[in-house]
């Protein structure tokens, strides 16, 4: 049970943070991640349009080798985690990451909202948190 990556997408569909936590280096370059984030943002919106009953956007995507969890905040920012298929309680982890984001990104006076996140404290704390989850399971 591991969390393999974290992405944060702003309300316009731009990727503002991406980090992989697995030991194997990522094969995708930053452009491809931007495209994926944009695609996901679009699909997330369409998924509410094609709903047979009134619905929110995508919360979990299941693929055969991984799961992708999405948490959308009230302001439209999306937190996305990819994990292996057996991982549980990811909603909780995403909310905790949102807390870390509020503390170390939103309260950072040098951060411009909706722009890519370059905050050292956020990096350190997220990494510590994800590591503690990956090691405990």
């Amino acid at each position: 049970m591991t969390i393999s990556s974290l992405m944060i997408i702003n309300k316009a569909g731009g990727l503002i943070y991406q980090k992989g936590f697995s030991s194997t280096p990522s094969k995708l370059d930053s452009n491809e991640y931007l495209v994926l984030a944009g695609t996901f943002h679009g699909v997330h919106t369409i998924s509410t349009r094609i709903a047979p009953v009134p619905s929110s956007g995508i919360e979990v995507i299941e693929a055969s080798t991984f799961k992708l969890h999405c948490f959308q905040t009230q302001t439209g920012t999306k937190f996305i985690m990819t994990t292996d298929p057996e991982q549980t309680r990811v909603e909780l982890y995403l909310k905790k990451v949102y807390e870390i984001y509020s503390d170390y990104v939103m309260k950072n006076p040098f951060y411009t909202p909706e722009m890519p996140i370059r905050c050292e404290l956020f990096d350190v704390n997220v990494l510590r948190y994800i590591k503690s989850i990956n090691e405990s399971s």
Partner: peptide
């Protein structure tokens, strides 16, 4: 609606294919 559904599954299929190459395979 069917066109939208096709667009969604097609995009997600490609997205999953891309991401699964990151997740170990």
């Amino acid at each position: 609606e069917a066109k939208l559904v096709y667009g969604v599954v097609y995009s997600l299929r490609n997205l999953c294919r891309k991401l699964s190459s990151v997740n170990g395979v």
